[in-house]
Structures are given as structure tokens and as C-alpha cells.
Design a protein around this nucleic acid. Structure first.
Lengths: 119, 119
DNA sequence: TTAACATATGAATATATGCTCATATATTAT
DNA sequence: ATAATATATGAGCATATATTCATATGTTAA
């Protein structure tokens, strides 16, 4: 019986390193949440929304004007952003105002910002 | 002639805020690159690769063992990571070793890490 | 040179995602 | 109550993405 890791035919895997890494990797559940978190920033429309709300609280209609996709499209994105805890909203009459629920989010955006800028 | 922003029917948009935001938004080209940058972290396989390589240089075969998708799948992801400047590689005989080309990348991962952890 | 192995790549596929259209809901004004 | 406005939501569509399969390329050993 051969219990070595049979990934590649030669089995000349770097077993120690591999096992160490396997043991240090966070659980899949966590990594999936991490991926989902970063997916938020992986779309320019959402980046624009976050960017905009960083400057001021805005209503849906404002965001439509700023970003230039349909009201429905904005609404859909705002819903996902709200579900992810990125934005919050308050209603005033017919108008729904959105703002950042977590200012720290913007720091993460900026770190990517910085990375893109000087590379 | 009416040159107000006709997004919503009532035109009762917050024109000042909207214009200010429009003027401060970075160019689309830049925001798209920013989105593409964050897309890297928006997939758990790529996160696993980055995470693994943070601990040690590994060959493709090792990563297959760690992550558990096909060799081809790993290779494809490594190619995109290389194109994005995240990893570099060196060949030793038949084996191709990959490592992080930019350690700072891991800091960004960790910031997301932290955000997920205490929210 | 031939065989074996490690990795890379093109094609195909299944799923995810972002957007729009049509329509529903919520709120206010008449 | 009815109309008008602002936003939300479900369905559908087109595109993007992650993965696998089959195969090509590069390298070493026999």
C-alpha cells in the first residue's frame, strides 16, 4: 500500500511543504467568504457606487446619474452591497438614501488603488 | 431646452452632490483596472494559491496536491496570476517552481481576512 | 532516439454575473 | 381613491469565468 500523495506520476512532490501548507490553509468555508468579500470590489459599477457614497450620501436616482446604467441595475447592485454590509439606507418619503455602512471598506479600495498606481 | 439631469422623472436629483461626485470619480480605464485587480482575490482557488505561495515556493504539482483541482486548472490560474504580476516562476528541470512576485499582495489579502473575521 | 514525466494550452462546458425590460411596491400629492 | 414618482424585484439574456478533457510542449533519463 502506498499512501504517498499520488498527484503527479513521479510522486516527487515536496511532501513536507505541501503538508505544512495544507495544515495552515484556512477552512474552505472561510476562504469562500473571503473570495465573496473581494468579489465586491471586482466590478467597476460597485466600485463607483462605493466611491460615490464615500463622498456623500446619495439616493438611487443620483447614483443612476453618476454611473449611467439603468435604475434597475443600480438597485440590484445596492441590494447586494446591502446584503454584504457595505451600505445602509434610510427612506425619506419616496426617496431612498444610501450611504456607506462601513467606512473601513474604503481603505481596502484605496490599498488596491495604491497598488495599481505605482506598479 | 432643459439641461438638467433627466434621470428620474421629477428631476429632483441632488445636482450639487452628483456633479461633485462625477468630477471626483477616477477615469473608467483606471476603475476597470482596479476591478480587475480585486477580481484576483475574488476566487477561492486563486486565494489558496496565493496563500500557499506565501508560505513557500511550490511546484505546480504541489499546488495540485494542496488545492485539489486538476493540474490543468492550476496551470490556467497560475498563468493569469503571472500575467497580473502576482506570481513568478523558475524552471528546474521538468519542474516549474512558483512563488509570489509581490509580497505586498498578501497584505491586501490579510486586510480582507481581518475584515471578515471581526464582522 | 525513445520513453516518461511535468507543465502549458486550446476547446468545450457549465455556472455565475451584470445588465435590461417589464412590472410590483411604497410613498406622496391631488 | 387616483395619479405620479422613486425604488425594488423577477425573468431573461448575453457575457464572463472556472473547470475539465485532450493534447502539445519542454525536459530528463534510458
Amino acid at each position: 500500500m502506498d499512501n504517498s500523495l499520488e498527484v503527479c506520476k513521479g510522486k516527487l512532490i515536496h511532501k513536507d511543504s505541501v503538508n505544512k501548507v495544507i495544515n495552515s490553509l484556512p477552512k474552505d468555508n472561510f476562504l469562500n467568504r473571503l473570495a465573496d468579500f473581494f468579489k465586491i470590489f471586482g466590478d467597476s459599477t460597485r466600485i463607483k457606487i462605493i466611491y460615490s457614497l464615500y463622498y456623500s450620501e446619495l439616493c438611487v436616482c443620483d447614483l443612476v446619474a453618476v454611473i449611467g446604467i439603468s435604475q434597475s441595475g443600480i438597485s440590484h447592485q445596492l441590494r447586494t452591497l446591502k446584503q454584504m454590509g457595505i451600505v445602509k439606507n434610510r427612506r425619506k418619503g419616496k426617496t431612498m438614501y444610501y450611504s456607506l455602512d462601513d467606512q473601513h471598506i474604503f481603505e481596502i479600495l484605496k490599498s488596491g488603488f495604491a497598488h495599481i498606481s505605482h506598479v
